[in-house]
Simulated assay, not measured.
Amino acid sequence: MKDNQGTAMRDCFRKAAEYISEHGHYKGDYFKPEWSGLKPSLISIDDSPLRPPALDDDGLTPPACAMGALHKVDSSGWASFAAITALSNRLGCGVSSWNDDPATTAEDVILELKRAADEYRSPVEKVADAVMAEARKVPTFERGYINAMQGG
């Protein structure tokens, strides 16, 4: 089953991990401003982005925090916002709080983004998984339908 939301989210997580791996990790803002000249981002108290930073295809590849990397690699225009929410739910705290914690390393961020990519299931995929799990309980010829009908 093809699910565009699931695919876009997993791609966003994977590409963000690759971005940080290639260009570096940053704490304190979306991107390292003195490196790139980008304006600092606006973040609300609850970690939800009020607006993405200047992310047009500017060719700049500054070191980024987890949220900055997710926004930088998002070609859909929506997946990064959904990915930040999903990542926050996974972590049990705000993404920027986790990213900026002194104990959180670049390796931690990269690994968590990769795990999120591997484990993310969209709402459509979750419903499909539940339907398939129930369908597997129904006897079929391959699983002994005749046996079930004969009481075996």
Rank of each mutant, 00 (worst) to 15 (best):
R10Q: 05
R10P: 03
C12K: 04
F13N: 08
R14D: 13
K15P: 08
A16Y: 01
A17R: 07
A17C: 10
A17K: 05
I20K: 02
S21Y: 03
E22C: 11
H23G: 12
G24H: 04
Y26G: 09
Y26N: 06
Y26R: 01
Y26V: 09
K27A: 04
K27C: 02
K27R: 02
F31Y: 02
F31C: 08
F31M: 04
S36M: 10
L38F: 00
L42P: 08
L42W: 05
L42E: 13
L42F: 09
S44A: 10
I45D: 10
D46Y: 08
D47P: 07
S48C: 09
P49L: 15
R51Y: 03
P52H: 12
P52L: 15
P52K: 12
P53Q: 05
D56M: 03
D56R: 02
D58M: 13
G59K: 00
G59W: 01
T61P: 06
P63D: 11
A66E: 04
A66G: 09
G68F: 00
L70P: 09
D74K: 01
D74A: 04
S75P: 07
S76Q: 12
W78E: 07
S80H: 06
S80Y: 02
F81D: 13
F81N: 11
A83P: 05
A83V: 12
T85Q: 11
A86V: 08
S88G: 15
N89T: 15
R90C: 03
L91M: 03
C93G: 10
V95A: 10
S96I: 07
S97D: 05
S97N: 09
S97Q: 06
N99F: 00
D100V: 13
D101R: 05
T104C: 01
T105Y: 00
A106P: 06
E107L: 15
E107A: 15
I110D: 08
L111R: 14
L111N: 14
K114A: 11
R115K: 09
R115C: 07
A117V: 00
A117S: 07
D118F: 14
D118T: 11
E119N: 15
E119S: 13
E119A: 14
Y120R: 13
Y120H: 15
R121G: 03
S122C: 00
P123R: 15
V124D: 15
V124W: 09
K126E: 08
V127W: 02
A128H: 06
D129T: 14
V131G: 10
M132W: 12
A133Y: 09
A135N: 14
A135L: 14
A135R: 14
K137F: 14
P139F: 14
T140R: 02
T140H: 00
